[in-house]
């Protein structure tokens, strides 16, 4: 028997003028690191790092389920709403969680759409953070699929979504973690993956903002897996070049969900990324 050190609680914040009951998990003590999950998934993607005693010895890892995801409920009245994530709502949610939890300029680590919003926050709200680890993150990715496939009455969106994103998982990933990663997509609520992809594949507002990111104040480190078909190493490299001072690491044997699909393979890249971040919270500007 074993009991993991991860603890989970709920936080209610206001987003878009209405309450959101948000589930968050944390483990460890030290520099806060706020971790953002990918589209169509939830905080479970981060559980391996949260259970890593060496990582949590000096870092407080916090992850939360975005509204509509995991154990965070959708807002009241969702039954008549079409879920379409926007950059503004995503930014407001992340900032509300930081304020609600009283985090002092955490490192922000986000994957996929979480990496995209990390770069948006690096451009628009750098003073709220001490650094950015953007995983499988790029400036913009138009869809190479039809996002409407994933929300229709005659088929299971979760199963189709999982089958599609399996294309982004490395064959080097252990089978058990490949399937644990896909299970989250299979469990995703109706229309949620589609609504996340709407943000991810249609909003290109980050592109002109990249050059304004000041990595001297808040470093940006981008990590990308060679087996990621959605955000390829070329996409990540293009994005890194557009951010003065950004650094890039390519993981030859990983895909789009590295912390979840192949925890052992991802660990050294994440530890390296943490070492590139400010070792102490900088003084207020």
């Amino acid at each position: 028997m074993s009991i993991e050190p991860i603890t989970g609680r709920y936080l209610t914040v206001t987003v878009e003028g209405a309450p959101r009951r948000i589930y968050f998990e944390e483990a460890g003590q030290g520099r806060p690191v706020l971790c953002l999950h990918t589209a169509g998934a939830d905080t479970r993607q981060w559980r391996h790092l949260m259970n890593d005693a060496e990582v949590t010895a000096a870092h407080r890892l916090i992850a939360f389920d975005m509204p509509w995801h995991g154990k965070s409920l959708p807002p009241e009245g969702f039954e008549t709403q079409e879920y379409l994530l926007t950059t503004d709502a995503y930014i407001e949610t992340v900032l509300a969680v930081i304020d609600g939890l009283g985090l002092d300029r955490p490192i922000l680590a986000g994957c996929s759409m979480g990496g995209r919003i990390a770069l948006q926050l690096a451009a628009l709200h750098p003073g709220k953070f001490s650094g950015f680890i953007a995983i499988e993150a790029s400036d913009f990715q138009p869809a190479w699929y039809d996002i409407d496939w994933f929300h229709r009455p005659d088929a299971h969106g979760g199963e189709m979504g999982a089958a599609l994103v399996s294309a982004n998982i490395s064959p080097h990933a252990p089978d058990v973690e490949r399937w644990n990663t896909l299970w989250m997509f299979m469990q995703s609520g109706p229309g949620v993956f589609r609504g996340d992809l709407s943000f991810y594949t249609r909003d290109d507002s980050l592109i002109p903002r990249l050059s304004s990111i000041d990595t001297a104040k808040t470093p940006v480190h981008i990590i990308v897996g060679a087996y990621d078909l959605t955000c390829t190493p070329e996409d990540a490299a293009r994005t890194a070049r557009a951010i003065p001072g950004a650094t890039l690491a390519v993981m030859d044997e990983l895909g789009h969900f590295p912390m979840s699909e192949h925890p052992a393979g991802f660990r050294p890249f994440f530890v390296d990324a943490l070492e590139r971040m400010p070792q102490q919270v900088p003084a207020p500007v």
């Binding site: 190479w144 699929y145 599609l164 399996s166 294309a167 490395s170 064959p171 080097h172 060679a226 087996y227 078909l229």
Partner: peptide, 15 residues
């Protein structure tokens, strides 16, 4: 057994 990137999935071949 462990295809190179792009050759690991039919949509990879497409990509």
């Amino acid at each position: 057994p462990r295809p190179a990137p792009g050759f690991h999935d039919i949509f990879g071949l497409v990509k």
